[in-house]
Design a protein around this nucleic acid. Structure first.
Length: 373
RNA sequence: GUGGGUAUCGUCAAGUGGCUAAGACACAGGGUUGUGGCUCCUGUAUGCGUGGGUUCGACUCCCACUAUCCACC
């Protein structure tokens, strides 16, 4: 039997651990390294699926926890699966709800069985277990399902981190045992271990032993300083097998993407570009632009003179500022489109630079232009 | 013209004799990283229509003026 999802290594950079590859799923291929836009509630906020396709996105992320609570996974199954429900015919990765164990911290209780949540919508109680998380993701029909894990805060104590990581490994085994149709959907395992090298190693060994089609590095970008994150990431990647896709969860600012690629990561996702767009911030080749700033009131030039996205081809900073200040939804739509285009395009350039064996040169060039992150 | 009301930040306003004059919106900056949240944080009146007066002390009381609103002529 063939796994639904596979990874092919195409080329390695000679001066860094960056690598050019390809992930294949039942819904197509994904050129890596890749940035995956996040569509938590079966929609990338403010975007139509066609727009995201046109930008070149080959995979989206969506969320088990949210879709389970609303509209309910049975309804999505009835609709013919998540792809059909949201009119997205390329690949989908669903997060398992593990992150909500972390982000909705005050509303939950964790046991060996799983995590008991209070719904943030109506306060109702739900148990999310490894089996339940896979059952839901089976109903959604995503190509890549994430194992149910516990994402712990960066200041957790070491004893707790070790207990938690071992539980996450046991949960992965349960996810794997529960899942039946491995030709239709694949599960990625998630490494934990906090900021401790020995625990990261332990976690990696435990999950790699289960021979999953891909592995994610979880529990990073959870509030720790950048240097710590990079140091941990450095050795984490080395603990993962070369022939499988590596996914760094929750990372999406341009600098972190470069640093991740440099260390051998293939996949990234992040709400940052879409969320900050809704809050009036744009990522540009010259750094962040806060469209709310008074200095743009009479700036009739595009957001980014190096960008050929729909927004930059047609609208000025003054207009985008006006839309944002007037609370017009087109403002969020145009900035979201720009930010996603920016990151997707940046990843395209990164892939090209690896193919041409000049990744570090491209990184330096990008950093010089970007200035402050 | 007569009678009555009202005048506090750009706007809407709380305060009613006594510490450094609420709050909201607007404005100005900043944050955001496996999305609960078009959101969160911070800042902004030495000043209470103008001029007098009463008082130890007035945005608060009194007088005049100005502006504005309502009613009547």
């Amino acid at each position: 039997m063939k796994n639904a999802v596979s990874y092919e290594l195409i080329k390695e950079d000679s001066k860094s651990k960056a690598r050019r590859g390809r992930v294949t799923t039942p819904h197509g291929t994904i050129e890596t390294p890749v940035f995956m836009p996040v569509g938590t509630q079966a929609t990338v906020k403010a975007m139509r699926p066609e727009q995201i396709s046109e930008m070149g996105a080959e995979i989206l992320l969506s969320n088990t926890y949210h879709l389970y609570l609303r509209p309910g996974h049975e309804i999505i199954k009835e609709a013919g699966g998540l792809h059909k429900f949201m009119n997205w015919n390329s690949s989908i990765l669903t997060d398992s709800g593990g992150f909500q164990v972390f982000s909705l911290g005050q509303l939950r209780k964790i046991t060996e069985e799983g995590a008991m949540f209070s719904s943030h919508i109506d306060g109702s109680k739900h148990l999310l277990s490894p089996e339940k998380a896979i059952e839901i993701q089976n109903a959604l029909g995503s190509d890549i399902m994430m194992a149910f894990d516990e994402c712990i805060p960066c200041d957790a104590d070491k004893v707790y981190i070790k207990d938690s990581l071992e539980r996450t490994s046991r949960w992965l085994k349960r996810c794997k045992d529960y899942h039946q149709d491995i030709e239709k959907q694949s599960i990625f395992g998630i490494m934990q271990g906090g900021m401790h090298k020995d625990l990261r190693y332990q976690s990696a060994m435990e999950i790699v032993e289960m021979d999953m089609p891909g592995y994610a590095i979880g529990g990073l970008s959870v509030g720790e300083p950048k240097e710590v994150m990079l140091e941990v990431l450095d050795y984490c990647v080395d603990y993962l097998p070369k022939e499988k896709a590596r996914y760094l969860m929750g990372v999406g600012s341009p600098d972190y993407l470069f640093e991740g690629v440099e260390r051998g990561v293939d996949m990234f996702d992040c709400v940052l570009p879409t969320r900050i767009a809704r809050h009036g911030l744009a990522m540009t080749s010259h750094g962040r632009v806060n469209i709310k700033n008074a200095k743009y009131a009479r700036d009739f030039t595009p957001l980014d003179d190096n960008c050929d996205c729909y927004t930059c081809r047609n609208y000025s900073k003054a207009y985008l500022r006006h839309l944002h200040k007037s609370n017009e939804m087109l403002g969020a739509m145009l900035l979201t489109e720009h930010n996603l285009h920016f990151l997707i395009n940046m990843m395209k350039n990164i892939r090209k630079s690896i193919e041409e064996d000049r990744f570090l040169e491209y990184k330096r060039e990008f950093y010089d232009n970007y200035g402050k992150f």
